[in-house]
Each structure stands twice: as structure tokens, then as C-alpha cells.
Write a protein that binds this DNA or RNA. Structure first.
Lengths: 206, 206
DNA sequence: CGTTGCATTGAACCCTCGTTCAATGCATAT
DNA sequence: ATATGCATTGAACGAGGGTTCAATGCAACG
């Protein structure tokens, strides 16, 4: 098996897949070129051949993590696609985070790296804004339709502020799930979020 | 100056101070024994003499970060001390996080490390629970006094759930401030939090 | 079939890090 | 003043990381 050639796209995918496995298991700090090569069943030199440096490999990995796995749409797509309520959207995102602890953990790693690294930081900021803008536009749409009975309590608060708060609820949940998945009761949390944020509680999804 | 002796406590403090400076500036990943020694103006061997390993040094650093700087009480102390409302407490924590970006960033680093490292993880889980319990007990007290007019919307939701949500609002804010301090409008955020979480808005602190 | 191009290998290189340890020197006790 | 103990030094070591590169081999083309 080793030694045979493969088309570039396929090989890059193979390497990124191995990198993802290593990164989720060992964390970003424990993710080394040697280990990735080992897991991929390839030689270290080949990684430097397809991605020219470790830095670029990790950037590609971040891209693939942000892009979402097949069948796991990012919120941006989820927002633009369906006609779901904001409440259901937030609930879906929370459940999504809880179901995918390892990806969340990896994202926390990237977030931590992005705090100091300009490139990673820029990329994450862009993603964050995309995320928030998508949420906001849906909030505006919902408000205009007068649904969710949200007019009362939210009066006077900008849609941007609401979006930021909702994002905090999602990310705050992710942060806790990342470090203490067992000590987190999803349903109880969602119930509290419903009561706090929306006048009408979200019907529990069966 | 170098070569002179010092009492153990003093020297440890000196080293930890240098470690803190390095860690906030370079991140946890860029925090190396050599750099700490350099910043502290000491020899590398001395670090291994007072803390027996890098791991223990970082644990001590985490402890000092969690303990809070002088004049910067942790929420646990803030809760037990004053008779402030929950609303004001949350607001204070949010402003606290925004004012101390570097400490928040360092905590994000530790959080990311704690996801994989058992010792750091355990320590952070303990701290998180302390934090949440303190919040919850104050929520219970407030509910009992019938203040904040929180009975309506919060009916049926456990104090624990409320505490978790409030913590998410604090940590979610911290997460964004860590990576994008400029793109975060504190007052707007606090206004949104007030509207979302409490029936009666928090009067802005002058 | 021979040749050319390029993917692939794996060992080697250099760097940095954490740790160790014999030598040094300061401060205290005698 | 001398001796003892321990804080302190800084060079050295081994491990492990990312990157490089000459050698190798596969596959397409003439």
C-alpha cells in the first residue's frame, strides 16, 4: 500500500483526516507532524510536500472543521435554509454542540490558539461574525413577523445585542460541555434558556 | 543582584510573577522555563529547584490566576460579601472580564489545556462548580425575598439551571472578548442581558 | 521498452525545550 | 574567622519537534 501514488486532492483529504483524528484525540498541542504521518500511514516528508508547512496544514484543518462535516451544516447554512424559529435554532445549536464534544474541544483549542496567532484569530473572527450576522438576520425576520411574542421583553434592545446574547448561550454551553460533559444537563439548560430568552418556552423536540 | 539569596516564599512569588507575565504575553504554549527564567532574571535551574517541574509550576500559576489578584475578588467572595442583586453581580462579572482581557485569555488557555489534562481539568471543574454554587445560592436567596421580580418568567426553572445560564452569559462574553475585544460593545451586551434574563432592566452603573 | 516527471520515502539536520548536576557563593552557626 | 548548609548558577544532556533533501520508485508518455 505505501509507495503508491494518489491524486492530490485525495491525498490531502487523507492527511487532513488523520490530522483531525490526532487533533481531537491528543489536542492541538499534541498534534505533531510525525504523529499525523504515522496515523495516515505516510511518511513525514509527504506532509511537507502537500502542505508546505505545519502551519498551513493546521490552517487547512481549521478550515475543514469550520466548514462542518458532511451532514453537519454550519449555523450559517441552517439559518438561510429553513424557516425555523430562532428558539429552535438556538436549541439545535446547543444540542449540536453537546452531541459533538470532540469537535467542540478542538474548536476550543483553535480559539485559544487564535487569541495570539494573527492568522487563526482573523479566521475565527470572520467566522464568528458570519455566525452572528446569520443569527441576527433571522432575529430581524422573526421580529418583523411578530412571532415568538418577543416584542415585549426585547423592546429597545438591538437585534445585534440579542444575537450576541444567544451566541453567548451557545458558546457558554460549549465551553462547559468541553471540559465537563457529564456534569451538564442539556434539557435542564435548554429549559432555562427558553425561560430566560423567550417569552414562550420552546416545545421540547421529541 | 543575581546570586543573592531570598526566602523561599519570596522567590516563588518572583518566579510566578514572571511566569504570569510570560503566559499572558506569549500564551501558555509560548511559556517556557527558559523564558520565565529570563524574565525573572534567574537561572533555569532555580525554577526546577523551587518548583520541581514545569508542570507543577504551571499548576501553581493556575492557582494564582484562579485565586484572583489582590483587589480583584473572585465571584465566590463577591457573592458571600455583599447584598448585591444577582443582576448587578452578573454585570460586575462581565465588566470584570472585559477589563481584564489578558487574564481572561490566559484562562481560556488553561481551559483548553484542561480539556485533555486530567489535573488541570479537575481543578477547573472544581472552580467552575464553586462559581456556579455561589451564584445559585444567591439566586435562591433573591427568589426567596421576592426581589428582581423574577418569579414570572423563571417559574418552573431550577435555580441550578438559572445559574448555568448566567454563567454561560459571563463565559460567552469572556470568550468573545478574548479573541475580539474591539468588536464587543459592553454596554449593548449588558442591556441585552438585562432584557433577556431579568424582567426589570439593570440600571447602568455610573 | 526506455525515458521522463513527479509523488514518495526516510534518514539527517538543526533547533528548542525540560531537566540534571557538579561547581560556586552567600549567609548563618560555631 | 572558619566551617557548614543550602540557594544559585550555567553548561550539558537527551528527547522530540519541524523541515530538508538526495535517493527511490511508480506511472504515464514517446
Amino acid at each position: 500500500m505505501p509507495g503508491t501514488k494518489a491524486p492530490e486532492a485525495e491525498r490531502r483529504e487523507q492527511i487532513l483526516s488523520a490530522a483531525f483524528r490526532v487533533a481531537t484525540r491528543e489536542g492541538l498541542e499534541g498534534t505533531t507532524m510525525l504523529r499525523i504521518a504515522d496515523v495516515a500511514g505516510l511518511s513525514p516528508g509527504l506532509l511537507a510536500f502537500h502542505f508546505k508547512s505545519k502551519r498551513l496544514l493546521l490552517r487547512a484543518l481549521l478550515e475543514s472543521v469550520l466548514g462542518g462535516a458532511p451532514g453537519r451544516p454550519t449555523i450559517a447554512t441552517a439559518v438561510s435554509v429553513g424557516r425555523v424559529t430562532v428558539a429552535k435554532l438556538v436549541e439545535a445549536e446547543i444540542r449540536h454542540a453537546c452531541a459533538d464534544v470532540w469537535r467542540v474541544r478542538l474548536l476550543v483549542d483553535f480559539w485559544s490558539a487564535g487569541v495570539r496567532d494573527v492568522e487563526f484569530g482573523d479566521r475565527l473572527r470572520v467566522e464568528y461574525r458570519r455566525y452572528r450576522d446569520a443569527l441576527r438576520s433571522r432575529i430581524v425576520a422573526t421580529q418583523r413577523e411578530g412571532r415568538d411574542g418577543a416584542d415585549g421583553d426585547w423592546a429597545g434592545v438591538s437585534a445585534d445585542g440579542i444575537a450576541t446574547v444567544l451566541l453567548s448561550l451557545i458558546h457558554g454551553c460549549a465551553l462547559q460541555v468541553a471540559i465537563d460533559p457529564d456534569g451538564f444537563d442539556i434539557d435542564s439548560y435548554i429549559a432555562a434558556v427558553s425561560a430566560a430568552v423567550l417569552s414562550s418556552p420552546i416545545p421540547a423536540s421529541t
